[in-house]
Design a protein around this nucleic acid. Sequence first.
DNA 1: CTAGGTGCAAATAATTTGCAGAGGC
DNA 2: GCCTCTGCAAATTATTTGCACCTAG
Lengths: 312, 312
Amino acid sequence: MDYSGLRPAGGKRSSKRDLILNLFLQQKGHLSADDLYDLVRREETGIGRATVYRTLQWMVEAGIARKVDFGEGRSRFEPSFHHPRHFHLVCNTCHRSSEFLSSDVETLIEEIAAVRQFAPSQTIIQVFGTCEECRTGHQAMPLDGEATERVFARDALRIAVATERSGLAFYTRAARLTTDARGRDVFRKLAEDEQAHLGTLERRYRELLAEDPLLEDRPTFLFFKGAAEGIFADGTERLRAGIDDLQALLIGIRCERDSHKFFKRYGERFEDSEGKRIFLEFADEEREHRDLLMAEYRSLRERMGKRKKTKP
Amino acid sequence: MDYSGLRPAGGKRSSKRDLILNLFLQQKGHLSADDLYDLVRREETGIGRATVYRTLQWMVEAGIARKVDFGEGRSRFEPSFHHPRHFHLVCNTCHRSSEFLSSDVETLIEEIAAVRQFAPSQTIIQVFGTCEECRTGHQAMPLDGEATERVFARDALRIAVATERSGLAFYTRAARLTTDARGRDVFRKLAEDEQAHLGTLERRYRELLAEDPLLEDRPTFLFFKGAAEGIFADGTERLRAGIDDLQALLIGIRCERDSHKFFKRYGERFEDSEGKRIFLEFADEEREHRDLLMAEYRSLRERMGKRKKTKP
DNA sequence: CTAGGTGCAAATAATTTGCAGAGGC
DNA sequence: GCCTCTGCAAATTATTTGCACCTAG
């Protein structure tokens, strides 16, 4: 690994700081200040505890590390490089912790904060309990620092693929069922777009697998229930012959909004990488789709307004 | 308030401990050990810091208090009497915290833990940010210790009423639409049950309002998105003429399962109270309903199996 | 009478700070 | 040369413990 791109914000470089930083980044799991001090002393005895504390503080300020607190009465630190913010499952027995993200949980919490007129800046979720290994002795594939970014990308891509597939199915069916000629064209265009996206995503997914042959066996990191079957799946099911064209547009608008939100949220969590680029591009396209659908919705409603309203 | 029912598990009573305990329980918000020590010294100077620490420890063991840690490098304590486990919105500016519960978030986290084969025992959620008062100067109705239990009961009852209302609508419509005579009877019976529950719930809700005239103005504590419109609302919408009777039964089964889970989860969080009793009773009834529906489902399927299958 | 509770002071434990000297730019 | 980093030891903060003494049951 190459960390040379690091050492951002203010502060001189120094051989001691470099040593501490490199040892920290090589470690997996969450180190306490003292864990790191011990490691450092093993390499070079002439480094004081205070320097380790000061360096950790600097790393946190510089965004290289994040402080985490599992209520042990001391802080632990995790590298943030190639490692998005996440939540923790903390084992009460072996004191190790495993990481996850949930789009659904984050959305719910944002909604709750909004109701309470609270402007959230950061959310900590710690689920304490017993891990599989401590309960059954059977050890699962670990999700260590090295792998996290790839697993994150893998999960995000899987969700994106499911979304695009279901979007494709939705727009294809919508184009077939809609009675309005203009609406049909819009749906057809979107179906083509989804098809193209899908190709890009699947290629990127294959590339990712090639980088790590065990990748598909690693546990899920990013949970997004709504997208297990694809965001549009529900909408597609509701698209039956005779459905109101306006309804179809509304379903499409809602789905595009949801998927835009998803791509945006997690695109932003990627480090600068291919994954980030793909995600943010897709987020933009979803917004364009939504705008297209909304324009079409308004237009159709206006045209319908001129006719007599029909009760279904 | 009467705390005399307290002082459970081992330990002698002593005037000092009583003094500390009572001061603690009278306080609103989350006290640090030192906050409490200061309060205690104001009443009686002859009490040592160590006693306060020891008493807090005892209170936590006895289940009178809960330790909370907002990462300030010291612990805070909150009373647990008439105060269910909850999550926190913590203001970075005024350092006060406000509480909430979300059935949806809890469900999602349970599901995630299950996927990871992790047996959860306790979940901590802390949302850091800026509260309304610090942002706009406009202060909202507080949700202090005194009120929490009633607000909890209020929210739970609101959700229960919405659930029963939507259940009533669902079963009424299902009874009307179903073509099978036996199924019709089942749906009718359930509709009657829901009607009866509804009466009980609404009476209890009115009683609660009478206890605290400001109750309806206090902010939401217990969030349950699925039940905003009632758990059955979605199912009712899908009940159209010509729907497969089996489908209707399946929808009912799923809804009863969801609402059983809800009543059970939060019934258990109530202290011994009227609310707890109502909730657990209702949880049982939902399970009975589910069993009834499941039996009917099996029976209907068997009877249908004897006929030719028809493709809709 | 005796297991626990209590005050006080001293001990721990994690982390920070003061200060004199060393090192990067 | 100046400003920051560093080591060391001392300070700070939250919490615990040892011990002689007290008190409820």
